[in-house]
Structure formats: C-alpha cells, structure tokens
Amino acid sequence: MKLAIKRTLFLVVVVGIWQLVVSMNIFPEVVLPGPVKVMQALFDGFASGSLLVALGASFKHLLIGLSLALLFGTILGVILGKSRQADETAGMYLIALQSIPSIVWVPLSLMLFGFTEFAVIFVVVLGGTFVMALNVRSAIQNVPPQLVKAARTMGTSGAELFYRVEIPASIPYYMTGVRLAWAFSWRALMAGELLSNGPGLGYSLQFASDFARMDQVIGIIIIIGTIGAVVDQLVFSKLEKNVLKRWGLLKS
C-alpha cells in the first residue's frame, strides 16, 4: 500500500509540474495543452465513442497478430531448439531479424498488402515472432539435463519425453518469451497503425496530429503508455513471476 501512495504522489507531482509549465505560458496552448484540456479531450473521445472504436480495432489487430506471432515463434523456436543443424544454419539470422525495429517493416507491409488492416497485422506478427522464437529456442536448449536423465530412468523417451518433461521444463523461458512478444507486438502495432488508414489508436494519433489537436495527441499517448504498463504488470509479469516461483527459479 505504501508503494501505491508513493506512486500516486509521484504522478501528482509530475502533473503539477506540467500544469506549472503550461501556466507560465512559455509555449502557445496549441503546442502544449494543460492536463485539464487533455483530460477533456480524452473524455470527449470516449463519450463520442471514437476512442472506443479505435481501441477495439487496435485490440483486434493485437490479438490476431500476437496469437500468430506466438504460434509462428513457437514453431520456429522448437525447430531451432531441437535441431542443431537448423540452429547453426539459421539461428544467426534470427537475431538479425529480431534486431530490426518494427517501423522498418511498415513500408514493406504497405507495399505488399496496401492500406489494409492485414498490413497492420502483418507488422505486428513480424514484431512478435522473432523475439518469441529466440526465447522458445533458449527454453528448449535450457531444459535441465538432470531432469531428462531422471525421466529416462523412469522409462520416458521419444515424444513422451518431449511433452511430459521438455515442454513443462521450458515453461519459464516460454513465459518470458510471451511477455517480450507482447511488448514488441504492442510497439509494432502502434508503428503499423500510425501509417495505416485506420481505425486504430495509432491512426487516431496520426489523425489528431494532422489536425494539430495536441490535446488528443497527448491523451492518446497516455492511453498507449497506460495500456502497455497495465497489461505488463497485471497480466504478463504476474504470470511470469508465478511460473518462476513454482519452478523454483525466483531468487528470494
């Protein structure tokens, strides 16, 4: 609880400074609107339903894109983790692909699929797949050999060894992969939508900026950041922590 108070207080201070800068009239209000104005813009956006539509569209893209990224990433990662041959041949390129910022994929995607929702989803998939694949690969490669040995003395081998031991043993790394894939996909989604024809949060942001509605721009940035933090804290970090604890990997 003490932590919550500290965090709230911090927020209040930041908003206070913001208001102070605005009150000093250094920037014209069109460039830097105050907190109240931004809140008003957010409220209007939700009241008119336009932000809700944008949010809905964004979550749809994310859900489809992230699911596909997790699927492809898992398949790729298992292949690389299981086959030394495949890892030696293609593993290096995966790191190269992973290091490409997702905004780089946007022009490519637009050329391939035009200004469609599919183009956005494609960018999200690329954003999440590689980081997922890398983590799944580590997950498979880091199965403790001791557990495999123990399982073998109990008559487990082949496919059974894979699903009864290797899969559960790799879940901690897998969860880290899921959390990172979400974070990367979320960033990719915004990059993709920014250059799309909408609907979507990124598109709304671009739209607001085109019409010089700084209050909306800041409001949407706040929404994007809030969703990112809340989903990470409430869903993925929690999930990951629980798994690590159960697997005895949490340093306490």
Binding site: Q146, L147, A150, T153, M154, G155, P168, A169, R246, G248
Partner: peptide
C-alpha cells in the same frame, strides 16, 4: 534405461511443475 532399475541422484531431480 528400464523400470526394473530406479535411480536416485545427488542433484535435485524432482519435476518442479
């Protein structure tokens, strides 16, 4: 390996899940 021989290792080897 076979189920006619059971082994207990020095290293922890229970399945944590």
């Amino acid at each position: 390996p076979g189920s006619d021989r059971g082994m207990v290792f020095q290293e922890p080897s229970l399945f944590p899940w």
